[in-house]
Nucleic acid binder design. Sequence first.
DNA 1: AATCTCTCCAACCGCGCCCTC
DNA 2: GGAGGGCGCGGTTGGAGAGAT
Length: 393
Amino acid sequence: MGRSPCCDKVGLKKGPWTPEEDQKLLAYIEEHGHGSWRALPAKAGNLVYMLMCGKSCRLRWTNYLRPDIKRGKFSMQEEQTIIQLHALLGNRWSAIATHLPKRTDNEIKNYWNTHLKKRLDKMGIDPVTHKPKNDAILSTEGHSKSASNLSHMAQWESARLEAEARLVRESKLRTSYSSSPSLQHSLIGTSASSSSSSAPLLPSSTRSLDHAWNNGSSTSTVATRVSDLESPTSTLSENNAPPVMTSVIEFVGSSERAMVKEEGEREWNKGFHESSTHLGEYKDGMENSMPFTSSLHELTVSMATTWGSGTTSAHEHGHVSEEGFTNLLLNSNSDHRSLSPEGGGESNNNCLGNGSDGHNNGNDNELYEDNKMYWNSILNLMNCSSPSNSPMF
DNA sequence: AATCTCTCCAACCGCGCCCTC
DNA sequence: GGAGGGCGCGGTTGGAGAGAT
């Protein structure tokens, strides 16, 4: 259907808004409320001289003048949320913005285009598909499927063991610190988000788990329960060094080489760098045998599916609602990552969700685990929730 | 100091959806 | 049911500032 111009362009003022125009628009909206944008300039014109197009008024209001807008740098938590949501929703900036309070779609869009997209690109991740670029290459090259499957299964198993060890650790922590409110708080984001609080992730996780396993040509049931993972009969010790770590570390190394001057990017890698320094032995031994781009994608799928396999309700519902996803993000974000120094008023500036209560005592392994979880949460959601996999698409 | 290049982001533009008549 | 209006969305642009040469 044909469209008429939103307003008469003759005599229409264009260009940046002046403070005076902002004040006039604010005053009008304050008095009459917003809406009826098309009529607003005319109406406002009775009060003030305003020749801005109604569309421009709306844009100015929604993107700049609205009182509930937070401006300034994005925190790492926000970055993570954007990446995760973009993996799920694609370029639906308004939908993404609804999950980021006080941020506008335009701001998020700009930030994605100027920062995050490039960052992912440099890290070897396709910002469109959110998958490692090598994935496409490998698939088109027609790699031996059986070899791939074997590798896949091995990686999955390693990831599963890793998750198991992690849960055992967390279980111990819960027991040790159950009387400490501050620690309980910190654990909400770690163990809890790994089990009950991560329920919204389940649909994609479970599907991905099945998918990952099926890719490995296995007919086994792999619905590992959290109760299983937490079983005291676990044979894993905390000192196990699962291959998945190597993948992450390798990834860090790669990304570090690719890193540029951006402050945010340095922050992203700082934690990893510190961790990899202390876990160098793992890296040295294994990085050559497990390049990041071919394994991390698969492993992160596996990791999350393991951690998230404790419930089935969401899976049974067959889809992830945006609300549920938001809950997941909030739950995981609140604990996974708040490495941003400025924090944007939202980050709690700790390393394990407990930095402020004296438990961030330089435990490198914990820092490493936390960073790994942070990245895995991002990459997992990319993998599990990419538009092609999402039930929303 | 001058010029060039790059980065960032506010604003513009066109399109599609939804609603009303 | 179709035309038209209003609104919101996403892609793109252009100017300002920062950094590099």
